[in-house]
Design a binder for these strands. Structure first.
Lengths: 337, 337
DNA sequence: ATGAAAGCGCTAACAC
DNA sequence: GTGTTAGCGCTTTCAT
């Protein structure tokens, strides 16, 4: 750590600390000459202000936190790109935390940042999270919060999501139109709003098509990969097996493909597959995967932009910001011709 | 931000600030009774110490920075998982910065963190970076640094890499063994050590097989996606087109697949493809992609572990740590049967 | 076992 | 236009 401080600059220039401080921030109450001297010396000595001293004094950290379930996932890594693109412009630093889909992890993380460490929080909740007390506590401490993708409806603040219900609906319509009779929805979680909404769209389309409640099938994924693999295999090779799967998250789609490969089930002939996914390789999979592609980068960018409004403008009402950015359905071979 | 401080605790308990501070850190010079009182009140008021006040005083930020070229890439996102897994255990926070493969970005980022913001740095350099002055400056300021994957040989510090040369060699041997006559190496960069080493392995295998220098072909990728696509298409459809491509990074492999699809070139019959990649969908691509899979998670974990040794032990010699974790070649259909 | 006091590096209010 | 001073919240001697 550089040990050259404002005091050092002041001493060598034989002026006061505060003049140096003001000069560095280009205050209008400092003469051109002094500013020049100060800036020159600062550059020469490679001076850089101690951010924590400044944070302590100004009660501003110039840092935001991003809390998400995981990072090895196209959607989330693209979101980070979006977030970084605006944080960088604002001169903010980005702390990243992963909940690994665990509610307790998420709680512990939030407990670590409600003490001034960050000026704001972007969060996509874990699949387990149903209770929002940990988030409300942070909010009560005055930290602006924006949900992206996975919100918690009981916490009133800004959200940036996509049109999940509608996409569940049009996705299912596509499957029906392709001649599927027994589609299932593979849900990542029974409680996550995104999954519930996608499921609602799924149900709606089937109801409209005359399906009875008992014939509308939803499978809920487990939290172990192994468990999921087994669950999928069991389902796709059952006697009354589905002829289409709508996967609620990217990872599930990959699992389905692998399971089909192992069980020797042909996509799309035996099983049509459609997935909510941002996976880069969708078009070169075997067969190319039809996807509902979320505007991941855009969502990250928008969420960050809204957050900064909340950070900068004291009386900006975050809870009124409910932004929906639509996804797009891209038809490829996995849903047939 | 919570406005309850040590002073508040002290006042309500009618004891001194310093006793509270000591009690909170379980100092042996505080009585059991006092500790209990303090802890109870702290819990009740949901007290959490201001990290920046503490950082300022202790000159320790409990934060590390990770600087990498990009994040929407399986390798890098898995590395982050590895890093986070150890940072979390150590109670450290992780700031993430992306250079987007630009040397100037990287320089600007490092300039932002040489002032005590972080206790250590994990970095994988941008494809453009050749000069390490920005890194040396940080090092001179006393910040422990560990390179992962992409090192800069002119900077003497710990590195965690994989066996790139060897992998380039065995990858090429495989292609030759599969009957390829005109393999090319598609390099992400002419200067990155990882690419240079992979290229060396490639050259070595070809030399051993009797190839003359002029018949050893290496293509250097451009920094625009469009440019790369064009370059690939031009190459794979040229008159003297290659019969195998060894792609130096994941992104290039995907580009090759897409180009082949568009140019109607059949993998592996017309062109065999082998890639340095951690892509999750390798086995379900069309055709399944043979890969040299890097130990990404392990590399992140190891790099972080080494970094913490450097942070914790004052006289730990980082520059002596040169760790090589081997990759594995996984043969799939893209290299033939 | 507890407390008083100094100070980490910076900013901001208030002199001059 | 420049300087003095207090203090952000915490830790750490050093007294008591």
């Amino acid at each position: 750590m550089s040990n050259i401080t404002i005091q050092v600059l002041a001493d060598t220039l034989k002026i006061s600390k505060s003049s140096v401080s003001k000069a560095l921030r280009d205050s209008h109450e400092i003469s051109k000459a002094t500013k020049k001297k100060v800036l020159a010396l600062a550059a020469k000595l490679n001076y850089s202000p101690n951010p924590y001293a400044s944070s302590l004094r100004k009660k501003k950290s110039k840092t935001i936190a991003v809390v998400m379930p995981e990072i090895a996932d196209s959607f989330f890594s693209l979101v980070i790109n979006g977030i970084q693109s605006v944080a960088e412009k604002k001169g903010y630093h980005v702390l990243i935390y992963l909940s690994h889909e665990k509610h307790t992890n998420e709680k512990n993380i939030l407990n670590e940042i409600h003490n001034g460490r960050v000026d704001g929080l972007l969060i996509s909740i874990s699949r387990e999270t149903r209770n929002g007390d940990h988030i409300k506590r942070l909010q009560a401490a005055g930290v602006p919060i924006v949900f992206f993708d996975r919100e918690l409806e009981s916490v009133h603040t800004a959200t940036v999501v996509t049109n999940d219900l509608e996409c569940g609906y049009i996705a299912t319509k596509l499957l029906l139109q392709k001649g599927c009779k027994r589609p299932v929805f593979f849900s990542h979680s029974a409680t996550l709003p995104i999954c519930k909404k996608r499921a609602e769209g799924f149900k709606l389309a089937l109801k409209e098509a005359g399906y009875k409640k008992k014939d509308i099938r939803i499978i809920y994924g487990t939290d172990s990969e192994k468990g999921n693999d087994l669950l999928i295999k069991k389902n796709i090779s059952a006697r009354k097996r589905p002829d289409a799967i709508l996967a609620s998250v990217e990872k599930n789609a990959i699992q389905v493909y692998i399971a089909c490969q192992e069980c020797n089930i042909k996509i799309p002939d035996d099983l049509k597959v459609l997935a909510f996914s941002n996976i880069e390789t969708a078009s070169i999979l075997n067969p190319p995967l039809s996807t509902i592609t979320q505007p991941a980068f855009e969502m990250g960018k928008t969420a960050a932009t809204v957050l900064f409004k909340g950070i900068e403008k004291k009386h900006f009402q975050l809870e009124n910001e409910k932004i929906i950015i639509p996804s797009v359905l891209i038809e490829r071979k996995s849903t047939g011709n």
